[in-house]
Structures are given as C-alpha cells and as structure tokens.
Design a protein around this nucleic acid. Structure first.
Lengths: 212, 212
DNA sequence: TAGGTTTACGACTGTGAGTCGAAAACCTCG
DNA sequence: CGAGGTTTTCGACTCACAGTCGTAAACCTA
C-alpha cells in the first residue's frame, strides 16, 4: 500500500514478530484460503491492518516464485499494489508504520524489490492513465495535485502542463468552486476533481499511431 | 505463444481430449510441480508442444483466480505471454495448431480473454519497448519489419516513420549488407538487426517528463 | 536501353509538451 | 484605504518529434 504523506511517497509496513526475518519490516499479507479469490485474500489480510474501504485502487503487480523467499517452504507469492488517497490517515496497529519509499529500512524476503516495483508501476501509470484519482482527495487545487505528482514521480512537474494535459484528456473537471490558499494570501485556486475514479488509459502511446 | 505467420498474428492452441471442454481449443499449460519456478513450469509444459529454444521472449501476463474456471477445483492460474520470431516453423504435435488471433475458435475456460490480453500487451509494448526483436528474424529489411508490425498492431505503419523512430532510439542498427527484394526487381533493401535481444523500455512516456 | 518496381532520404507539416511572463485575485501591514 | 507581496491563471512562444510526400537511387525484366 502506497500513499503520499507529508510530500513523500510512503509504504505501509509492519514489523515481524517471528522468524524468519524477526524484527525486519515486511509487507502486509498472508496465505490464501481455499475457495478465496486472490483479491479477496488480499483485502482480508489488509483489513487486519487498516480500513480497506480507504483503498482507492488495487491492482495485481507480479507473481513471484523465487528461491530466495522463505527458505522453509517453496512459495508462490502474489504481489498487489494498493493506493490510498492523500489526507486520509487510517488507524493502524502498533507494529505497523508508514515508511518513505526513498528511505526504506531493511525489508524481509524480497519485499524491498516489490515496493520498488510498485513505485515504478505507479510512476509509469501516472503518465498514461488517470491513476491520479487514487492519490488525490475528492477535491483539490492544481498546486496540491502537482505536489502529489512531484512526490510520486520524484521530479519537478509544471502545474501549467499538468493542467493542460489532464484537461485535454478529459481526466479533470473544475468543480466551479475555489479555495483560498492556506497561508500567505494569494489568488484563490480553483477546485478540481477527477471525472472518473476508475482506471482508464488516457494516452494512446505517442509512437506508431494508426494513420489519420 | 504468439507468432506472426502469413502476415497474421497467430496463437498456438491445442484441442482438448478430455472433459471439461472436450474438443475445445485451449492454451498449452499444466500444473505446477513442487520445487519448480513458475517460469520453469511454463517451459516444461511448452516443451511438450514445441522446441522451447525457439521462444524469443517470455513474460508474465496475469494471474487469475476466477470462479468460472474449471468448476471442479478452485484454481490459481498464471498466464504467460511467449513470442516466436517469424519464419521459424516449430514442429508441433497432431492436436496442436496455429490460429489467427483475429478469428479464434471456441476456447476453453477463459482462454479467449487471455489470448486477447496477450495481444494487447504485445501491441502496447511494440510502441514503447524493443519487443520487436521477438517477432523478427535475426536480419530483415525495413519492409519486412513493417509487415510484422502491421500484422501485430492491426493497422498500417509507415516504414519511414518506423525506421526513423527505431533508429533514433538506438533499437535498430544496419548490418551493412543488402538484399534484393524477392519478386519484381527494385532497389535492394538494406538489412537491419535489433541491437539488443533483451527487453528494454525505449520510450520515456510522452507526458510529464522530468524538466531539462 | 526504356520502363517498371522497390527502397532511401530529405523537406515540409502539424500536434502537443515544456517554458515564460503578464494579469488576476487574494492577503497583510502600515 | 492603498502599497507591496503571494499565489494562481492563462495566453503566447518554442521546440521536439511523429506523420506525409515527393524525388532520387538502385535494381529487375522485356
């Protein structure tokens, strides 16, 4: 599970209480029960840590069967990517904390690679889909949205370009209202919302388009 | 497994000899054995049908756990996408045949959706990676490569643009040799090859690039 | 050798992303 | 109440690159 908090992209991790990897940080998850869908299983295990209704998006990341996983048993592990909108602060148990993806602690198994794969998937999809809806609150100003993109992408983003691109693609729509900026005055910003909160591909890749 | 044969994108299917879905066409595959990697398992099952050394590329597609699969047992199925270069013609058993993806027969389970997902994945990656190497023979003319792209993408492609784009990205390189076109004379075409035969992302998506 | 065919390549066009600056709309402080 | 500072908005400009087109090159066959 990833979320932008405090202008940084962070991952929800919990500290293991048992061997192997005692005291190392780990991704939430667990075993599949019979008669259960993969996604049902994920949601069940996540529900132990957070309120799953706050998940704005959940998608399959990859399936792993590497040998360097838990050496006791040969496992097939399904990694999922979940996204939580900014500004919600789910209640989490004692052993669970958010960690900036840019400064991860020692992680159990191959969980570090999984987190980085999730970050990369998010970065790519921010460019050609409307996943932004899963990072943003229901309404927001363009500056706030820009800050979310900066945190997730890890580089500067022009608010002007962001607005132009997302408007032309029909991803954003103005609410008609405006909100005064928090601190030092300034022109009040217009509020926007995502037109849809379901994943859609918005960029037909630039190259080798059909003619016409 | 997909391959461009006869100017059409085709999928390798075999006809089931047992219930359920008796006589329906089906994707090659089978069960995972203990102590086996997912990819090892896939290659083992494919080896029954074809010479797996002819696979130029193999990647994970998706993992399914739907209820409308084999109703007898609840299964987790891992779908893979394999690509075979044009102009190789692997020996296949009696019950196995290539079928154009655009005119698939009745398929068992949800295999039809899997084949279409594989086709879509291939189409997308042709635009922003160098997967072309897995569809093309070792050396080829630009017209031949264009025809492969047309078959896979399903729409016209300009040979001029294809050349310019793939050369600028450093995906193609000329071999220095040339080959007379098959039939009616004409200027002999220069031969090209893919600089690398490992999957690489070559298009940093058009949108929201880092500044500079 | 003339005409046909295919490939190669430069020039032009058009779209859209990145940049910049001015104007708008608010605040606070004197 | 006005001046200066701050933030947002929006148009205009630039530039990179994909798509189009026409001509020249290099071969074949009759």
């Amino acid at each position: 599970m990833l979320q932008v908090r405090g202008a940084r992209l962070q991952a929800l991790l919990w500290q293991r209480a048992r061997e192997p990897f005692l005291a190392a940080w780990s991704l939430p998850g667990g075993y599949l029960e019979p008669g259960e869908t993969l996604e049902e299983s994920i949601r069940r295990h996540l529900a132990v840590k957070v309120d799953v209704r706050e998940l704005a998006h959940l998608e399959q990341l990859e399936t792993l069967s590497e040998a360097h996983r838990n050496p006791l048993e040969w496992e097939i592990a399904n990694a999922y990517l979940g996204l939580v909108p900014a500004e919600v602060d789910p209640v989490v148990p004692e052993d669970t904390r958010w960690h900036p993806v840019s400064r991860l602690p020692e992680l159990a198994f191959d969980h570090r690679a999984i987190v980085l794969a999730g970050r990369d998937r998010l970065r790519a999809k921010l460019s050609y889909t409307n996943v932004g809806f899963a990072l943003a609150p229901p309404e927001f100003t363009l500056s706030e949205l820009r800050d979310l993109y900066v945190a997730a992408l890890g580089h500067e983003v022009s608010a002007t370009n962001l607005q132009r691109v997302l408007l032309r693609r029909g991803v954003l729509e103005p609410t008609g209202e405006r909100r005064a900026s928090g601190r030092a005055g300034g022109r009040p910003a217009e509020l926007y919302r995502f037109r849809s909160r379901r994943l859609t591909i918005t960029d037909q890749f630039a190259v080798l388009r059909p003619p016409g």
